[in-house]
């Protein structure tokens, strides 16, 4: 009997793979991990998506170990070593104030990751809550919440971000807030549309008939089904967020000097574009690679998480 149990429930000693792929899981955790593992097997088949994941993981690692990786201080100036070309003591050369560009690039990864993480952490939950509530309750709740969403959707993102930053003062925190405020409306729309399609389904009616409260149905039943499309959309939007943050930095409204921020670095390198191209090219390339990474990752996630294919 023990041996039979081991086989059907997939004993862990038989190897983690067999445990994850077990036909009959032995616990909720095993079942959930098994589902994730099956999704990973699908994800792994897409080389572009794996490339995207590698780039995003690389960004996280670089941001974590920045002080040890950089070699130089990102803010220490050395006017004797201005605008040095790449090579020698400075891998990517130096900028107009003699600061090591590689060190600034590596420290800039922290700023970029901070922006991306905070925007996702603010915008995605707000969008989910607004959209799922609007879709589930319908009626006047829907009307009020979606008109609020429309108001935010009506503003061009960079312009509204500019207005917020102008009102609150320049700085990285205000840039993050401004981007987050303009980022959530599309998530609310997606969440609402998905909620409306599942609102009348049998399992929601069953939950209502069991006496579940509206908040329990929303959090336990609706959000798990709507969150995957929102996660995909958030990942795909991250490239846009990075570009917006860089744009604000470029205009001098994002991170303030001497903090190393990629957009501000390009703005500083603009004056030397023709003769010292590496000053602007290095952060530009970094923005390109990271944006591409998030887009590839988002595409791969869509293939895995899209309920129409899952």
């Amino acid at each position: 009997m023990k041996a039979l149990d081991d086989r059907s429930a997939g004993s862990f000693s038989a190897g983690p793979r067999a445990w994850l792929m077990a036909e009959a899981a032995g616990s909720r955790r095993q079942a959930r991990l098994g589902r994730w593992y099956a999704a990973w097997l699908v994800f792994r088949r897409n080389p572009l998506a794996v490339t995207g994941l590698a780039i995003v993981c690389g960004l996280i690692v670089v941001a974590l170990v920045a002080p040890w990786l950089a070699g130089h201080s990102p803010i220490e100036q050395n006017l004797q070593a201005r605008l040095l070309p790449p090579g020698g003591g400075h891998w990517l050369g130096t900028d107009a104030l003699g600061r090591d560009i590689f060190a600034r690039l590596v420290h800039g990864a922290r700023i970029t990751l901070l922006i991306v993480a905070l925007v996702a952490a603010i915008a995605a939950p707000v969008g989910l809550i607004m959209g799922c509530s609007a879709g589930y309750f319908g009626g006047w709740v829907d009307a009020v919440l979606m008109r609020i969403t429309d108001v935010f959707l009506a503003f061009p993102r960079l312009i509204l971000a500019l207005a917020f930053v102008a009102a609150l003062g320049p700085g990285i925190e205000n840039a993050i807030l401004a981007i987050a405020i303009t980022a959530w409306p599309p998530y609310a729309r997606i969440a609402r549309a998905e909620t409306i399609t599942i609102r009348t389904s049998g399992f929601i009616q069953a939950a209502r008939l069991q006496g579940a409260s509206a908040s329990r149905i929303l959090v336990g039943h609706v959000v798990p089904l709507t969150s995957s499309s929102v996660i995909v959309r958030v990942t795909l939007d991250m490239a846009g967020v990075i570009l917006t943050a860089a744009g604000l930095g470029f205009l001098g409204l994002g991170a303030q000097p001497p903090v190393a921020e990629w957009g501000a670095m390009i703005a500083a390198g603009r004056q030397f574009m023709l003769d010292q191209w590496w000053v602007a090219a290095a952060p530009g390339l970094a923005i390109l690679v990271v944006s591409l990474g998030f887009n590839l990752l988002g595409d791969g996630l869509r293939d895995v998480l899209d309920p129409k294919h899952g």
Partner: peptide, 10 residues
Amino acid sequence: GALHPRHVVD
């Protein structure tokens, strides 16, 4: 349609 697709039977 009557069973939540992301919930286990338990």
